[in-house]
Amino acid sequence: MRYDDAYANAKFIPGGADYPPRWAKGAATFRAALGQRARLGLRYGPAEAGWFDLFLPDAEPLGLMVFVHGGYWLAFGPRDFSHLASGALARGWACAMPAYTLAPKARISEMTAEIAAALPMMAGAVAGPVVLTGHSAGGHLVARMASADAALPVVERLTRIVPISPLADLRPLIETAMNADLRLDPAEARDESPALHPRRPGTSVHVWVGGDERPAFLDQARRLGNAWACPVTIEPKRHHFDVIEGLEPPDSPLMAALLG
């Protein structure tokens, strides 16, 4: 297919196949160490994937950071990335990570609706401000929450949204082999592309992407930044799989962009 190589990541990253098992191992270790401060499998909806995990800091949370996982809407789940909550917890924030129904069981528009439905349930668990972040397909889903046409029940508490390596224009994905499962058609690709919609007025967005990512992802990040006139940080020497490591230390530039 025309864009398969453009949107492939693992085969262009040295040791790319080693990252998913490393993520899963780190996530399991993190959850085990957190003990009672890991509240797992909280429900937000009736679907099988209608749940989220909530991780709490030692003291009363200062607010809530939500992380939405990636995987091209086809793979992974929140518990592959639990360890990415560590930076927020060290800063005194809680972190929620929602599941959502993956393709081919759900279309991308249905995933957008699931994340919108999860937000009030997650925000209801913790007082204070809310920030949203997500990676790759998760970056797309949190960017959709900033689109003017999307329902956003927690808008009055939302401080900012930081899409990491987001897919902002879905139209090229129609010409990839994975579209056999995504089932994007031109209308849905247009409707679900954040870069093709206005940003919700008053919603703060900061796009983040690795400097060593595939050109298509750099283009997607810049496209969203240009469309929404929002900052785009290109982090040097980071590729698509390690750019999310900035969520682990509390004092990283990425955490500063998220929590100030």
Rank of each mutant, 00 (worst) to 15 (best):
Arg2Cys: 03
Tyr3Pro: 00
Tyr3Phe: 15
Ala6Val: 03
Lys11Tyr: 02
Phe12Tyr: 15
Ala28Met: 01
Ala33Tyr: 00
Ala33Ile: 02
Gly35Trp: 07
Gly35Pro: 05
Gly41Ile: 14
Tyr44Arg: 08
Ala47Ser: 15
Ala47Pro: 02
Glu48Val: 15
Trp51Gly: 02
Phe52Val: 06
Phe52Glu: 07
Glu60Ser: 14
Met65Ala: 14
Val66Gln: 08
Val66Asn: 04
Gly71Trp: 08
Tyr72Pro: 01
Leu74His: 05
Ala75Ser: 14
His83Ile: 12
Ala85Gly: 11
Ala90Phe: 02
Trp93Tyr: 15
Ala94Cys: 06
Ala99Trp: 12
Arg107Ile: 05
Ile108Ser: 05
Met111Asp: 02
Met111Phe: 06
Thr112Ile: 15
Thr112Phe: 01
Ile115Asp: 03
Ala116Asn: 04
Ala118Gln: 06
Met122Lys: 09
Met122Gly: 09
Ala123Gly: 13
Ala125Pro: 00
Val126Pro: 11
Val131Lys: 10
Gly134Asp: 10
Gly134Ile: 11
Ala137Lys: 02
Leu141Val: 10
Leu141Gly: 06
Ala146Glu: 04
Asp149Gln: 13
Asp149Ala: 14
Ala151Lys: 13
Arg160Asn: 14
Pro163His: 05
Pro163Met: 10
Ile164Ala: 09
Ile164Thr: 08
Ile164Val: 15
Asp169Ser: 01
Arg171Ile: 00
Glu175Phe: 07
Ala180Ser: 07
Arg183Ser: 00
Leu184Phe: 08
Ala189Ile: 08
Asp191Arg: 14
Pro198Tyr: 06
Pro198Lys: 04
Thr203Cys: 15
Val207Thr: 11
Gly211His: 07
Asp212Gly: 02
Asp212Met: 11
Pro215Leu: 12
Ala216Tyr: 04
Leu218Gln: 11
Leu218Asp: 01
Asp219Arg: 13
Ala221Trp: 05
Arg223Ser: 03
Val243Arg: 04
Val243Gln: 11
Val243Lys: 06
Glu245Pro: 03
Glu245Asp: 15
Glu248Tyr: 09
Asp251Lys: 06
Gly260Asn: 12
